[in-house]
Every structure is written in structure tokens, then in C-alpha cells.
């Protein structure tokens, strides 16, 4: 008896769940079709970003050699064995460019998530409480924003020392003031909404109001901040590495690959073409996708002038 009951229990959900899954699948297909027709540029961007993301995820399988293996002849021009040639230390450029996707996305994603999240918390909390703390925090944001971004990042790298983790810290700090200011302005208007008053009247604790009522309503802004800034963070990381002050030189950063190429402009131009192309396509894709996401999430811009 219990056997049968078990079987029934297990068997029952399969039917409806399967049907729902199918419907869900159809919904996804329809949504992708809608996205491709309504935002063709955004769709191209999404495909590019997807390609870069897949490259980053499957880097170990896709790269024929290790990104740091200096095991080959130096300055080999692109050929069948090395489709992108080799660099000044005899490393396979294809493998470095592929692993570079992983480094770029890792640095871009983590720094933006940290920076924007910290900024969002800061902005929401100070907006909610207002008063002196808010004024002081606004002056701190002003001061941070008074430092030109790349200059601030350079100064931070001087203080922290060169490493991938420190690049992430520096980039995150760069994004905190912008995120704090943007989320604060959104939170200021949310704070005045009747449902916040209702939550307060129902006796909800301050932290509960902030985290469960104010913050979830800033989500659209948060998502736009994240998508728009990933491209920016990737470019700044590459710029820092290009200046020789970001990731250590043996790390496969597209920026430091470009620097190495600059030393051998005439003899090995492939050393600048491929990493440069990789970063341009990535940023191009992220920009197109970011624009589309902004159009979709911000109703005020809907049907605007492209």
C-alpha cells in the first residue's frame, strides 16, 4: 500500500508541471521573438554578450593552451596552429584573448555588483532617515565625485598595490557615489508613498520598511545601474591594465595585452588587433543591451527618439 501511495505522489505532479514547462517554454520563445523585433539592436547586443559570456564560462575548454604558458616561439604571426599568433613571451594569443573574456567579465560583474549594492544600501538608508546623516553623506558623495574616475582609480591602485582583487575594490569604490546618489533620489520619492506610511502604521520596524518596502521598489533603477556600468567597469579595468597599473602583467587582461602590443607595433600588430577587437565587441554588445534594458524598464523613455 504505501508503495502505491508513494508512486502516486511522485507521478501526479509530472503532468501539470510538464504542461506548465511547455507553456513556459513557448512564452520564452515568444518573448525572445518580441525582443528581437522590438529592439533589434538590443538583440544583437544580447547575442554578443551571450557569446562573450559563453567564452568566459568555457574558457578552459575553448583555449588550446594555458593563458600563462610561455612555451612557444615569440612573435609568431597568425597561422593555422596559432590563429591569433603568439606574443613577446611566446604565449598563444588566442588562449589569452579567450581567458581575457573571463577576467573582464569577472572583474566587471563583481565590481559593479559590489559597488552598486553598497551604493544602493547607502542611498536608501540615508534617504530614509534624512536629516544630518543624509547631509553629511551627501557631502561625502560630492567629494568622491569631485575626483575624476580614472584618476581616483589610479590613486587607489597606488595605495592598494597591483592585483586583480584590488582592481575590483577600486572599481567598486568608483561606482558607489553614483549609485548612492541615483538610488537616494528614487528612495526619496518612494519614502513618501502611502504604502510606506501604511507599513509604518502597521508597526513595521525601520529596517523592515527599508529592506522590504523601499529597496525592492528601487529594483528597476538598480538593474539599469548594473547593466549600464558593467561595460564602463570593463573599460576602466582595461584602461588601468593598459597603463600597467591594473592586473599584474601575466594575468590575461585585454588591457595589458594591448600594452604589450604597443611595444611591438610594427613587428606584431596582431598583438593589438585581437585584444582590441575583443574588448570593443564586448563593450559594443553591453552598450546596445544596456540601452534596450533602459528602454524597457523606463516607461518615460518608451517610444522616445532613438
Amino acid at each position: 500500500m504505501p508503495d502505491v501511495a508513494d508512486r502516486v505522489d511522485v507521478a501526479l505532479p509530472v503532468g501539470p508541471a510538464g504542461a506548465a514547462g511547455l507553456e513556459h517554454e513557448r512564452g520564452v520563445v515568444r518573448w525572445v521573438g518580441w525582443f528581437a523585433t522590438r529592439h533589434p539592436l538590443g538583440f544583437v547586443g544580447a547575442l554578443l554578450v551571450l557569446a562573450v559570456a559563453l567564452t568566459a564560462i568555457f574558457a578552459p575548454a575553448l583555449a588550446p593552451h594555458g593563458p600563462k604558458d610561455a612555451a612557444f616561439a615569440t612573435y609568431v604571426a597568425p597561422n593555422a596552429e596559432f590563429p591569433m599568433g603568439t606574443d613577446h613571451l611566446g604565449r598563444d594569443m588566442l588562449s589569452r584573448v579567450v581567458w581575457g573574456a573571463r577576467l573582464s567579465l569577472y572583474v566587471g560583474l563583481t565590481s559593479v555588483l559590489f559597488g552598486v549594492t553598497i551604493g544602493a544600501l547607502w542611498g536608501a538608508v540615508t534617504a530614509y532617515f534624512g536629516g544630518a546623516a543624509d547631509s553629511v553623506s551627501q557631502r561625502v558623495v560630492d567629494s568622491l565625485m569631485a575626483l575624476p574616475p580614472i584618476i581616483l582609480a589610479l590613486a587607489l591602485m597606488a595605495a592598494l598595490g597591483q592585483s586583480v582583487t584590488n582592481v575590483i575594490v577600486a572599481l567598486a569604490l568608483l561606482l558607489v557615489p553614483t549609485a548612492a546618489r541615483t538610488i537616494r533620489s528614487v528612495a526619496l520619492s518612494i519614502k513618501e508613498m502611502p504604502y510606506i506610511e501604511a507599513a509604518r502604521a502597521a508597526g513595521a520596524a525601520e529596517w523592515r520598511v527599508i529592506f522590504l518596502h523601499v529597496m525592492p521598489n528601487t529594483l528597476a533603477t538598480y538593474i539599469v545601474l548594473v547593466t549600464v556600468n558593467i561595460a564602463y567597469a570593463i573599460v576602466v579595468e582595461a584602461a588601468l591594465s593598459f597603463l600597467g597599473l591594473g592586473a599584474p602583467p601575466d594575468e590575461p587582461s585585454w588591457g595589458s595585452m594591448l600594452t604589450a602590443g604597443t611595444q611591438a607595433l610594427e613587428t606584431a600588430p596582431w598583438m593589438i588587433f585581437f585584444p582590441g577587437l575583443a574588448i570593443s565587441l564586448t563593450v559594443f554588445g553591453l552598450n546596445l543591451l544596456g540601452d534596450a534594458i533602459r528602454d524597457i524598464t523606463d516607461p518615460r523613455l518608451r517610444g522616445g527618439l532613438g
Binding site: 573599460v235 582595461a238 584602461a239 593598459f242 588591457g255 594591448l258 602590443g261 604597443t262 607595433l265 610594427e266 600588430p269 593589438i272 582590441g276 574588448i279 570593443s280 563593450v283 559594443f284 552598450n287
Partner: peptide, 19 residues
């Protein structure tokens, strides 16, 4: 223009000048 990182544009111009 927005998507080409400025250091890449710069290096490409330098490459063309040298080449």
C-alpha cells in the same frame, strides 16, 4: 565612437602612423 575604448583608438592611430 562610444564603443571603441579610447586607448584602442589611440593605439590603432599610432599603429597606422608607424606603419
Amino acid at each position: 565612437g562610444l564603443s571603441l575604448p579610447i586607448f584602442f583608438t589611440g593605439v590603432m592611430i599610432l599603429w597606422a602612423l608607424v606603419r
